[in-house]
């Protein structure tokens, strides 16, 4: 296990390095931020001074070296637009995105597992087929369009829910959260559901397939032969078995949920990292773009590691085979 762990770590560091190089070269090699940041009337002198101040006069490899050294110190450059450290800007926006992504994941699990198990227990019934058709739609509908439809129905026509922003937040452990206030919850409901839709479809499919497989297993039949109630068989025997693939996939998907929050945040004007990156791309605020991408890549690598560890906790078979190997 330690050998495996170290190999995974080294692989992760390598990926991080390659991605940083790609992102940095890509973002800094093309376009000229000076054109955007300095008014067209500025004279040559002013432009040079700004270029030097931003470090844009140095050769590219030197800029990258500086970037890596600074990145290791936790400094990913200053935002051209906000003139504050890019990493601070991202960390400011991160709680909003995390709150959205985690709420969405929970929504997907809490709705998806019962629906998927129901469909798995009654695959031929009308309700089972309806749930499956719904999950096919959830897979194929573009997130942003579903978001628009939610706004159209619940905000514009019915007027039940607000369509933009986080609403009132409350501070908890130094982080502002919407979920702690009623107004914030009302603001969170639609974006979280929008982001959850894809996960929900995924969980329904996994839960349905897992349930269908599990109920055919001998251990379910043996549990029935023991006289155990069907509620306990489904709630304990089947449930614990389908949780393994679901937790694995959802863990791996948390990264992509955060990445896809870009779309939902734009639709619902949710002030998270995703909205920040879209604004930054449009403004060519490169340190912020680079910092965002590095943070996301880092999160991905971290999540993959955690999921691997969590997986071995959930499935006793993995635990034993790894401690042997």
């Amino acid at each position: 296990m330690p050998v495996y762990f170290i190999r995974r770590m080294m692989q992760s560091v390598l990926v991080l390095f390659v991605m940083s190089l790609l992102v940095f070269v890509g973002v800094f090699a093309i376009g000229n931020p000076i054109d955007i940041l300095i008014s067209p009337e500025a004279d040559q002198h002013e432009i040079e001074r700004a270029t030097r101040a931003l470090g844009l006069d140095k050769p590219l490899w030197e800029q990258y070296g500086l970037f890596v050294v600074n990145a290791l110190k936790g400094d990913l450059g200053r935002s051209f637009v906000f003139n504050i450290p890019a990493i601070d800007l991202i960390l400011q926006r991160m709680p909003a995105t995390m709150e959205l992504a985690i709420t969405a994941t929970f929504m997907g699990v809490l709705l998806g597992i019962p629906l998927g198990m129901w469909a798995g227990l009654r695959p031929e019934s009308f309700s089972g087929k309806l749930i499956m058709s719904g999950s096919i739609l959830g897979f194929s509908l573009p997130t942003f369009w579903v978001g628009l439809m939610l706004i159209m129905i619940f905000a514009v026509f019915l007027g039940w829910l607000p369509s933009t922003g986080r609403g009132q937040t409350r501070e908890f452990l130094g982080v502002h959260l919407s979920i702690l206030t009623w107004d914030g919850l009302r603001h969170l409901a639609m974006p979280a559901f929008n982001l959850a839709l894809f996960k929900l479809s995924l969980v329904i499919r996994l839960a349905r397939a897992g349930t269908r497989e599990a109920i055919l297993q001998d251990y379910v039949k043996f549990a029935r032969a023991k006289g155990v109630s069907s509620r306990r068989i489904i709630g304990v025997h089947v449930f614990k078995n389908i949780m393994i693939p679901i937790v694995t996939v959802l863990g791996l998907e948390l990264g992509s949920t955060i990445a896809f929050a870009v779309v939902t945040e734009t639709v619902f004007a949710w002030p998270g990292m995703g909205k920040l990156i879209i604004d930054s791309i449009n403004l060519l605020d490169r340190p912020v773009i680079v910092a965002y991408l590095m943070v996301i890549v880092f999160m991905f690598i971290f999540i993959n590691l955690v999921v691997d560890l969590l997986y071995s906790v959930l499935d006793p078979r993995v635990r034993i085979s790894e401690s042997k190997g």
Partner: peptide
């Protein structure tokens, strides 16, 4: 009646016990 008055033992002992539940869980529930 199942499990109390009539019991059944299956062919493949690899498959009849739930792999993700401990033995005590599976016997206590019985």
């Amino acid at each position: 009646l199942r499990g109390s008055r009539i019991a059944m033992i299956f062919q493949d002992p690899m498959m009849t016990l739930n792999p993700v539940l401990r033995i005590d869980t599976q016997m206590i529930e019985a």
